[in-house]
Write a protein that binds this DNA or RNA. Structure first.
Ligand code: MN
Ligand code: MN
Ligand code: ZN
Ligand code: ZN
Lengths: 143, 143
DNA sequence: TCAAGAATGATAATCATTATCATATTGCAA
DNA sequence: TTGCAATATGATAATGATTATCATTCTTGA
């Protein structure tokens, strides 16, 4: 009897032109969970969310996130408090952050698309995503 | 007798238009040390460098770096390994980094100057610096 | 079917950063 | 100039996120 437990392992994102990678069950679970989240999450937060659905280890989540990053399926950014937030690679996430109180305002515009394509061609890199964040002091915090 | 130990506390950088802040001796030392470094350093590395010249505590360095950031005199960025690197705010430091091996290639171009000025005007923020980094996989790491 | 290799999960170990707290320094009023 | 309250500093403990271990459980291909 053949177990039909292949969840399609659909990998589409940035991996165009690369031999389609097969994800482990852990990686697939983490990717699914991330794609169902409205905003970026820390590994620990993801752990809290996922363990309610299925048993999974924190180490597996960290390993999966790293692997998914290298595959171009997940992107990351580091907050001022030092925690890393992960999200599925869909659209950009850029912010204007106050160094004093930490408040972050999302930025819609992104002027680096062209440079990215340019770098992609000029370098030997396959670029998956980028981080762009402005730091300063908000009006409430300024003297 | 009046001790002439005021090291001018010259603060020029991004603090244009703000009441000139007086730096503590610790902050001034850290700023000087950073300005004499050719590249960004971690707080720990800075500790190693500075303590050879004068006695200073690691906590003081961390506190000074935070204060200097809020003053717009120091900028930071976080590496893939999780350590924060600091540098005096002079010019931008942008990179193209491999998620697999960690190699980082400096990028000269920066297309966000305009957006920054735009945000500066549209928001209530006083913007000091920004981070911009591209992530992907380098040629040596790609399958 | 089965063994080798890969993945997983529980847990210990790291390590950068923060919090404490006692001491030293500074700035300013008297 | 003196005295003191506020601030800064430094040694060290505590924290917390991430990583390393390692025994166990899947996967996979011969
Ligand atoms: Mn962008
Ligand atoms: Mn720039
Ligand atoms: Zn603020
Ligand atoms: Zn690489």
């Amino acid at each position: 009897m053949i177990l039909k437990k292949d969840a399609e392992n659909s990998v589409e994102a940035a991996s165009k032109g690369l031999p389609k990678p097969r994800l482990t069950t852990g990686q697939q679970s983490v990717l699914d969970a991330l794609q169902h989240q409205p905003q970026a999450l820390s590994a620990q937060a993801l752990y809290g969310v996922m363990r309610r659905q299925q048993p999974i280890g924190l180490a597996t989540i960290y390993r999966a996130l790293d692997a998914l990053k290298v595959l171009g399926l997940v992107q990351h950014r580091v907050t001022l408090t030092g925690e890393t937030l992960y999200s599925a690679v869909k659209h950009d996430h850029h912010y204007l952050t106050c160094l004093q109180c930490g408040v972050s305002v999302p930025i819609e515009t992104c002027p680096v698309k062209e440079l990215e394509a340019q770098l992609q061609g000029a370098s030997s890199f396959r670029i998956y995503y980028h981080t762009l964040e402005f730091f300063g002091v908000c009006g409430r915090c300024e003297v």
